[in-house]
Design a protein around this nucleic acid. Structure first.
Lengths: 341, 341
DNA sequence: TTGTAAGCGTTATCAA
DNA sequence: TTGATAACGCTTACAA
């Protein structure tokens, strides 16, 4: 406790060098003679010096902090994305200040204010409550992931391609009718691409299709009830017909699958199901479920790469700031398992 | 970009007060006259002042940073724990620097070094690779969660009680033989309590039981294969008998359930299954699975409470450091669903 | 209630 | 290759 920490001043006193030289030892060692490097190195171990980055931040303005705002960690998609983002520490060295779980614009604005107070160098945002226009106004590098991104750089899954892949697979499976269940997403959100991709392919192949754009509820119980309802509707409307169903994500695909299993003891021949995300539940379901897989690790790495480039650029004396935000698009991977042919 | 930031000096110049007074406005506003408070408040908006906490940290030594080291975010238990820990920001105001996903002692030591370089005030650690003795030597408040905790404070689920609850439920379900599958955990790890609780109750009730202490593999495929093997073994050893199986967690319980479903199209009457954790998969399984539920939110909050107390104590001029680490134990919640009577 | 002045531990700028 | 000195933005005695 009471032991004061060893500082550059102590090392300087001990070695007879100036603080500047000690600083240089850390930041530009080659500017010292090898002999002196060794002297200082020895002093460090003798004195048991521990780095203190706060002084450095204050003097240099570089925190190496990146802020993350994430809607929740309950959904696997988000927790795995965070996982992958955190893993980039090994590559880029940025530390992450993480806020999660609000989903309310005013609360998230508080989070951002706090992050800015710590001089974060950049921000990755997965939450969609704050308009990108406002995010851009904070004047630090920001990369969005799967959210509205008109005024900020972003990395997204190629959702349109995902819709195309899902519809393509289902239409090849001999289905009579293709159904896509999803929330009614505005076009500004990348995920809306899935709907367009799905529709375009259905039209192109002249496949009968239906869009069921409805909110499936906020709890597992609500999901269950509404999806059960959906089954009733579909069976009433398309009896006997072979239905190819593209669910908005693997969690909901799993609920559908379980409900059908409970009704029929198996997945009836009149159903084909495909989910989205390739989250663990798609493999852990009663029957491994086909899905359009998001390449979470690729997305996370691209996001950090993009952010890191922008942060590095800013540190230069005459930064060339990109006038236009950069939008990267990562292709999804179609994963065929046992709920489709 | 080029706009320099507004500092206390600017506000002081603008208002005619000293920097000290500006500082006081933020830290102890009541020590100023209401009139002067208003003057400063006005200046803040005029100048568009933005907090900079780095200076404060340097001057005061208080970072309000808490470090978190977590094995991974792939398992729901960890991601939900992180979720709940992050949520305590609203209560305690500590910001979290998060590292995840190494599970290697040397890497995690690097993480800790980095955290210490940023003057974190305390640490929550879920990872078990670094012995608590070493953690204690860092001389900052540390709280462990479900890990070896001899020399550090900790919050754990009452694992023994969990084992008791599981064995109790299964023995009431008319089983002929009780089986607990688990890894071969050393007694220093809290989770070992489950095994002891299970065994003690089986003995007390004179229930025949078997412990299968084996590693179930590191991937879903391995889990599947080994659990399938387990079923073969159990069916060979206990044909016709009603088997009550206590799995080490919900993920593995789900794999077992799915395998049985695939073999028999349902959960046979000769099986009763109970998992551990109450993770989402237990509700999302083909048949909602009984489980011994961990109270993650309670654990997270208790951990932060404990840590916060220790951090607050340290800030006092004459801190009373606890000689002995504090260990809190949170009771599990038995959740009966459809895989047990 | 307010101000002065000395830090906090680095880095940056010059100069040597 | 090295050093002196002034920042960086805020807090904290101590003084008034």
């Amino acid at each position: 406790m009471k032991e004061k920490k060893v500082t550059f001043a102590d090392i300087a006193a001990y070695t007879g060098f100036s603080k500047t030289t000690i600083s240089r030892y850390f930041n530009n060692p080659d500017s010292l003679t090898l002999e002196n490097q060794e002297k200082i190195a020895a002093a460090l171990t003798v004195l048991d010096y521990k780095e203190n980055k706060v002084g450095r931040i204050l003097a240099s303005g570089r925190t190496e902090f990146v802020g993350i705002i994430i809607p929740n960690l309950y959904m696997h998609y988000y927790s795995e994305m965070l996982n992958q983002i955190l893993a980039t520490y090994e590559t880029y060295g940025y530390k992450f200040l993480v806020f999660a779980g609000s989903e309310k614009a005013d609360v998230e604005k508080r989070y951002i204010k706090e992050l800015l107070a710590y001089n974060i160098e950049g921000m990755i945002i997965l939450s969609g409550t704050i308009p990108s226009k406002e995010l851009a106004s904070y004047n630090i590098p920001v990369v969005g992931i799967e959210r509205e991104d008109q005024y900020i750089s972003s990395v997204n899954t190629d959702n349109y391609m995902g819709g195309v892949q899902a519809a393509g697979l289902l239409s090849k499976s001999g289905c009579d009718i293709l159904i896509h269940v999803n929330a009614d997403i505005p076009d500004s959100v990348p995920a809306s691409g899935r709907i367009h991709g799905f529709v375009d392919i259905c039209r192109e192949y002249h496949m009968p299709y239906e869009l069921i754009l409805t909110h499936l509820g906020n709890s597992f119980e609500e999901n269950r009830e509404r999806i059960s309802h959906l089954i009733d509707q579909m069976e009433a409307k398309y009896p006997q017909k072979k239905k190819g169903i593209f669910m908005p994500n693997d969690t909901h695909a799993n609920v559908l699958l379980n409900l059908l299993f409970q009704r029929y003891g198996k997945l009836p021949d009149t159903y084909q199901i495909i989910g989205f995300d390739n989250s663990p539940i798609s493999r852990e379901a009663v029957i491994p479920t086909s899905t359009v897989g998001q390449q979470i690790s690729v997305i996370a790495n691209e996001a950090m790469k993009l952010l890191s480039e922008q942060m590095t650029e800013r540190k230069k004396r005459r930064p060339v700031l990109p006038k236009e935000p950069v939008h990267k698009v990562i292709p999804p991977l179609l994963i065929r398992r046992e709920t489709t042919i």
